[in-house]
């Protein structure tokens, strides 16, 4: 069988909304009063989580700066980079507008974490909306990270954010010139293009400012604190995030078959904003990250057993993607249980 193309189908164009019909996704039924309680947003809960992250970021950054020039800088910057790269899961939650009840807090922090994560916020908001509409539907979902057959080096390069990061830098550059890349043109409405172009230009100015700062002080240190951490410190986030869909079924209208929920330690869940409850997130994306454990408990009876940890998830993922190098039809099948 010939390899499938993962390029977006040009017939599905956000500028012709009727072409973007959502499949009939299966969702575990939850009575509306219960769901209403689960979707409640709370500034205090989100604020505590984000404040703790900010404190950890500043403290680890201060230690990293203090060790700069010594070998202690290696572990210090690794810790800082891991904490910094938690911006990516926060970017994701904020893109849904769910952590804070106060809307402008979601929006302001969304753009801060978008920059930290090297993701132009406007484009990614629309890309991610399409991902939720057509999760792992080939030719429709722009966020399929494990095309078949597997490109092992492509997957491994993600540990240093090389594949996604460099693609994003190119996208920012092209969009800053006013030209819209063909894939983005299919999921970002024309009315939003000017915002996307403006934001890309602001990003370029900020990147230039960072480079000028490095030159002025004759050191890479400023970039080691802003921007580069997403590359050298993004490995843990990548290892966590690749469990979401990698190696599972494509083109199914049931998140339980295409998405994983992986149980993680509370430190991992803090850094990952509870996105390990990924089936739950896809079924009910309006539920804020801090209520996903409760949602998990509510729908667990109707979902495949969660993986007990990252090791268990990768015990499935690694052999699956390895076989997918030569067998593009192969995937890991999840068991569906009837409550």
């Amino acid at each position: 069988m010939a390899n499938r193309s993962y390029a977006l189908d040009p017939a599905i164009d956000i500028n012709q909304p009727q072409s973007v019909a959502e499949p009939s996704w299966y969702r575990t039924p939850i009575p509306r009063p219960e769901l209403k309680a689960l979707v409640q947003r709370d500034d205090a809960t989100a604020g505590r989580d984000y404040a703790l992250w900010a404190v950890l970021l500043m403290a680890s950054g201060a230690i990293a700066v203090a060790t700069w020039g010594s070998w202690w800088a290696v572990p210090a910057f690794l810790v800082y980079g891991v904490i910094y790269s938690s911006c990516d899961s926060r970017w994701h939650e904020l893109s849904h507008g769910t952590p804070f009840k106060t809307r402008w807090l979601n929006e302001a922090l969304y753009h801060v974490t978008s920059f930290m994560s090297v993701r132009e916020g406007h484009r990614w908001r629309w890309s991610h909306a399409r991902h939720h509409t057509h999760t792992i539907h080939v030719g429709r979902d722009p966020e399929i990270h494990g095309p078949r057959p597997t490109n092992i080096w492509g997957l491994l390069s993600g540990l240093l954010y090389l594949r996604g990061g460099l693609r994003e830098l190119r996208s920012i550059w092209v969009h800053a010139t006013g030209r819209i890349l063909p894939d983005a043109a299919l999921y970002v409405p024309k009315s939003e293009w000017p915002k996307m172009v403006l934001t890309c230009r602001i990003y370029l100015v900020l990147f230039a400012g960072l480079a000028a700062w490095c030159l002025a002080v004759g050191s890479l240190l400023p970039a080691m604190l802003i921007g580069l951490p997403r590359f050298y410190g993004g490995f843990l986030h990548y290892i966590q995030a690749m469990t979401q869909h990698l190696g599972l079924a494509e083109d199914v209208d049931d998140y339980r078959l295409s998405t994983r929920t992986v149980l993680m330690h509370r430190v991992g869940r803090f850094l990952y904003s509870n996105m390990n409850y990924h089936i739950e997130h896809h079924m009910y994306p309006m539920v804020p990250f801090y209520r996903l454990p409760a949602l998990h408990a509510r729908i667990a009876h109707d979902c495949p057993p969660p993986y007990p940890g990252l090791a268990a998830a990768y015990a499935e993922i690694i052999p699956t993607v390895w076989r997918q190098r030569v067998d593009a039809e192969h995937y890991a099948k999840r068991p569906l249980v009837t409550a």
Partner: peptide
């Protein structure tokens, strides 16, 4: 708030 993509 829309249940799918949180447009308001």
């Amino acid at each position: 708030e829309c249940p799918r993509h949180q447009g308001r």
